[in-house]
């Protein structure tokens, strides 16, 4: 699923603390199917999350989001999270999200300007995140072209497929 980085988003915030680990995001060894996972994601921190999260909501987290095992956060997209913003993101979770074209942005200071339940505006092209109610904003770190291209292709496997087809077509010519 391609994610259009040029789109601006606005949604309700679910706020989490520091060092939220992938065991909480994606406890696949207890809930092996996506349908089960959707009922349990993030419940270790907020039991109401899987029940109340709505399509278009925004997840805001503190430092080191997605630490722990290398596991994708596809379940967050499945339950409707439109974008993830964090003070910092664990590198494998970041790689995982980029490779699956899940919008995740590092925005230092984000947890200081927004409270749980508030509305947040995310403007990637302008590189800024805003809280309309208070007018507060912080900078969002933009990605280099090599990563923006992965988002445009819809993910790294999709981009691998396109490259493979391109190269084999060339060889056959």
């Amino acid at each position: 699923m391609a994610f259009d980085l040029n789109r601006t988003l606005s949604g309700r915030v679910w706020k989490f603390g520091d060092s939220i680990e992938t065991d909480a995001i994606n406890p696949y060894y207890r809930y092996p199917t996506m349908e089960e996972l959707k009922l349990h994601t993030m419940e270790a921190y907020r039991p109401e999350f899987p029940k109340e999260v709505k399509a278009g909501d925004i997840l805001v987290a503190g430092r080191n989001f997605g630490c722990g095992s290398s596991r994708p956060g596809l379940v967050l997209r499945e339950v409707g999270i439109a974008v993830i913003l964090a003070e910092s993101v664990s590198r494998l979770f970041l790689r995982n999200s980029i490779a699956r074209a899940i919008p995740i942005f590092v925005a230092p200071g984000i947890t200081k300007i927004v409270e749980d339940g508030a509305t947040l505006e995310v403007d990637y092209p302008a590189g800024v995140v805003r809280v309309p109610a208070s007018g507060a904003s912080v900078e969002l770190r933009k990605f280099p072209p090599v990563i923006e291209q992965i988002f445009a292709a819809g993910g790294l496997p999709e981009s691998a497929y396109a490259r493979y087809m391109r190269e084999t077509a060339k060889q056959n010519n």
Binding site: S70, P72, R95, N96, R100, G155, L156
Partner: peptide
């Protein structure tokens, strides 16, 4: 790396 990276 991630599984999607590994495919690449």
């Amino acid at each position: 790396i991630t599984r999607a990276d590994m495919l690449y």
